[in-house]
Simulated assay, not measured.
Amino acid sequence: MVHESYVVPGEKLNNAELCEAFGCSPQGGMRRAHKTNTLVIVSNHIKSIYDDRWLEGVLHYTGMGTKGDQSLTFQQNKTLAESGSNGVTVHLFEVFKDQEYTYVGEVVLESKPYTETQDDEQGKPRKVYVFPLKLVSGDRLVEKQESRQCRECPFSQS
């Protein structure tokens, strides 16, 4: 199995490669992997009801739950909210092209989650939790940058 440490920022993976590298589920925006003690979060910029946005180097990432008010104690919202103390490493991927996941890097909470109103999947206003996340490396690669391929990954293409 490919380990997540072989994935480098800017690298583009398909869903199967992402799941192989992190040992996570093939679906969802927040994918917990107990085997690797990681949480993979996906910010999909092409098809999503969530209003994820970068502001001054911080990703304001909307929590889990597509209908009705979100809860901070619900599934991976709780994992992400407690990521500063639960030992789980959080990895961010962004989607700008269908079925292509661009690895951004490891992220940590910049500050406590806050609430705001966003529409749910039925277009009804509801309370969501927003997680301010910053990159551990401090640098965000732009989405148009050429992918740097991982030399040691068996699925890399030169």
Rank of each mutant, 00 (worst) to 15 (best):
G10K: 13
N15V: 11
A16S: 13
C19K: 07
C19M: 07
E20F: 07
F22R: 03
C24Y: 06
C24V: 06
S25D: 13
G29R: 11
R31N: 13
K35I: 14
T36S: 14
N37E: 12
T38K: 00
V40E: 01
I41A: 04
I41C: 00
V42F: 02
V42G: 06
N44K: 07
H45V: 00
H45T: 10
S48W: 04
D51Y: 04
D52R: 05
W54K: 09
E56G: 04
H60M: 10
H60T: 00
Y61S: 01
M64T: 12
M64I: 06
Q70W: 11
S71C: 08
S71M: 12
Q75C: 08
Q75W: 09
Q76E: 10
N77C: 09
N77W: 12
K78R: 15
T79H: 07
A81V: 05
S83E: 04
G84K: 09
N86G: 07
N86V: 10
G87D: 12
T89A: 14
V95A: 03
V95P: 00
F96I: 03
F96C: 01
K97R: 13
E100A: 08
Y101K: 04
T102H: 05
Y103M: 11
V108G: 01
L109Q: 08
S111M: 01
K112C: 10
P113I: 07
P113F: 09
Y114W: 10
T117Y: 04
E121T: 03
Q122H: 15
R126I: 09
L135S: 08
V136K: 15
D139V: 15
